[in-house]
Amino acid sequence: MSLQQQLDDFMAGVREKVPTDILSSVDAAYGELAADGRFPQALGVGDTLPAFTLNDAQGQPQSSQTLLARGPLVVSFYRGAWCPFCNIELRALQQVLPEIHALGAELVAISPELPDYSLPLIEREQLSFPVLSDLGNEVAAQCGIAFELEGELRRISLEVFGVDLPSFNGDASWRLPVPATFVVGRDGRVVLAFVDGEMRHRAEPTAILAALRELAAAQAA
């Protein structure tokens, strides 16, 4: 089953439980976010991944330069452990991790959450790749994918779903990364870029693996 089908199936279950007026507001807000072109500075194919050093859930620094020295890198930005769509995506990435490694690549997932919230996520989903904390969304901003959760979305997140971003992220802002996935060659150049303001759309693992295969074939040629 594709990742998108898994996300769609989960959303169908949500629609059976959440009031229609709430879902209509969420649909409209994320539809606007996806359509208004507010991410023109997002990394694209051919751009260079900004260098970063971020702590993992155990407090150990992970450097993009060190990771790229080993091979290609898959970078997945997710919103937080509180987001069920992100959890589905991370599980799907874990399932293809052996194939990612077989292609000589590494995978990291990045969110603005404090490490204290990442650890339970790693244990619950049995993740065996680094989960990094981008406090203040600094790297996400450098990648052109940070935005402020505002208006009705902020109210619904807090009052309906109990998501208090300042508590999860350790700062007063309501900033998030738009869900995004980048496949990066050893030279730091992006060869696949997935950026979508609609939170229920994520990069397919099959597309990630296809991009890594192309890199491996080019290196072997």
Rank of each mutant, 00 (worst) to 15 (best):
S118P: 00
L119K: 13
L119F: 06
L119I: 13
P120Y: 00
I122R: 10
E123L: 13
E123D: 14
E123K: 14
E125W: 02
E125V: 08
Q126L: 13
Q126H: 14
P130N: 12
L132V: 12
L132T: 02
L132I: 11
S133C: 14
D134M: 14
D134S: 11
G136C: 10
G136R: 04
G136A: 07
E138V: 11
A140V: 11
A140E: 08
A141N: 12
Q142R: 15
Q142S: 14
G144N: 10
A146F: 00
A146M: 12
L149Y: 00
E152H: 04
E152A: 11
L153F: 00
R154F: 00
I156T: 03
S157W: 02
E159D: 09
V160D: 07
V160K: 13
F161V: 06
G162T: 04
G162P: 07
G162A: 10
V163W: 10
D164C: 07
D164H: 14
L165P: 06
P166M: 10
P166S: 09
P166G: 09
F168Y: 15
N169E: 04
A172C: 03
S173D: 05
S173Y: 00
W174A: 07
W174D: 08
P177C: 05
P177M: 03
P177S: 04
V178M: 01
P179M: 05
A180S: 15
A180W: 06
T181W: 04
T181P: 03
V183F: 05
V183L: 04
V184K: 02
V184S: 02
G185C: 01
R186F: 01
G188T: 09
G188Y: 06
R189L: 09
R189D: 02
V191T: 13
L192F: 13
A193D: 00
F194N: 00
F194V: 01
D196P: 12
G197Q: 05
G197D: 06
G197M: 07
G197H: 07
M199T: 13
M199D: 03
M199G: 10
R200H: 04
R200S: 07
A203P: 06
A207T: 08
I208F: 03
L209P: 06
A211M: 10
L212T: 06
L212S: 03
R213S: 13
R213H: 11
R213Q: 15
L215Q: 14
A216Y: 00
A216E: 13
A217I: 03
A217F: 08
A217K: 11
A220G: 15
A220C: 08
